[in-house]
């Protein structure tokens, strides 16, 4: 059994960010990330200001900064692309030591890197302060189509049941002396996966029977949280601040790359 509180991204706490109703928080996150993405490349001062906002949010959330940074690894491929851009872009070039770099590539790479880092850090912070089941509830509240909500909800519920089944099957294999060492063992693994699919499919049928027996007609009744005007106001602070930063950056010609 896992930790009492859900998934590896979630960090248990009681800060303002943890307590904010999730549907409001999700809208706030989307608005904030939209502002970041809409900011033209090269507005370095604006990106620095966003960075300060994100850092302030991390402090407010009581989630340790190391915890947030440690979960940023999914952005690594983007960092790689950003690093490549100066080498592969065309146009005006400058020489740094022995290598020649494209100016447009440098600017593009830096912008991509900053946008990805800021957006990903915000998303990780959102995940760290949100229980997964609350996220499903919020998505339902925000009118995500029912099939998607239900798929998410079932995935959440049965992830551990299925991974438990995988563990039992691999113990059963190992108990009879099986070790996957070479490709000639792959057929066994494939059959195991097949058995797992069939078991999961059959469980799906049994779950459906149990649902129909309790009056299921296609909709999952979910209890929604309500957000007060004050809570919406609190959530709005972050994207509104970011939007102001963007406005100032557009109007004032300072802190931009040439």
């Amino acid at each position: 059994m896992g930790a009492p509180h859900g998934h590896p991204l979630h960090y248990h706490g009681h800060s303002v960010l943890h307590r904010t109703p999730v549907h409001a928080k999700l809208i706030g996150l989307l608005a904030f990330v939209s502002v970041i993405v809409l900011t033209p490349g090269g507005y370095l001062l604006a990106f620095a200001a966003y960075g300060v906002i994100v850092a302030a949010l991390v402090v407010v959330s009581h989630v340790p900064a190391r915890y947030v940074l440690g979960r940023l690894w999914p952005v690594v491929p983007f960092v790689g692309v950003a690093m490549l851009l100066p080498f592969i872009a065309t146009g005006e070039r400058i020489d740094v030591g022995a290598v020649s770099l494209a100016v447009e590539g440098l600017r593009g790479g830096l912008t991509l890197l900053l946008k990805v880092l800021l957006a990903a850090t915000s998303a990780v912070l959102f995940a760290a302060t949100t229980e997964p089941r609350e996220l499903v509830r919020a998505l339902d509240q925000l009118r995500l189509p029912q099939p998607l909500v239900q798929i998410l909800s079932f995935m959440l519920r049965y992830l551990e049941v299925v991974s438990d089944e995988v563990r039992r099957m691999s113990i059963a294999l190992a108990s009879r002396g099986f070790r996957a060492r070479s490709p000639k063992h792959w057929p066994v693994l494939a059959r195991t996966m097949g058995a797992l699919f069939i078991r999961s499919y059959e469980r799906g049928e049994r779950v459906h029977l149990a649902m129909v027996s309790r009056g299921y007609t296609g909709r999952m009744p979910m209890q929604h949280a309500s957000a007060s005007a004050r809570e919406w106001g609190t959530v709005a602070v972050v994207p509104v601040l970011a939007a102001l930063v963007l406005l100032i950056a557009v109007l004032l010609p300072i802190g931009r790359l040439p």
Partner: peptide
């Protein structure tokens, strides 16, 4: 595990009466 499919015990018990 077939009968309990909602994220929390409360949601699950509420499923039938809510329907």
């Amino acid at each position: 595990d077939d009968q309990l499919f909602m994220p929390t015990v409360r949601d699950d018990v509420a499923f039938g009466p809510a329907n």
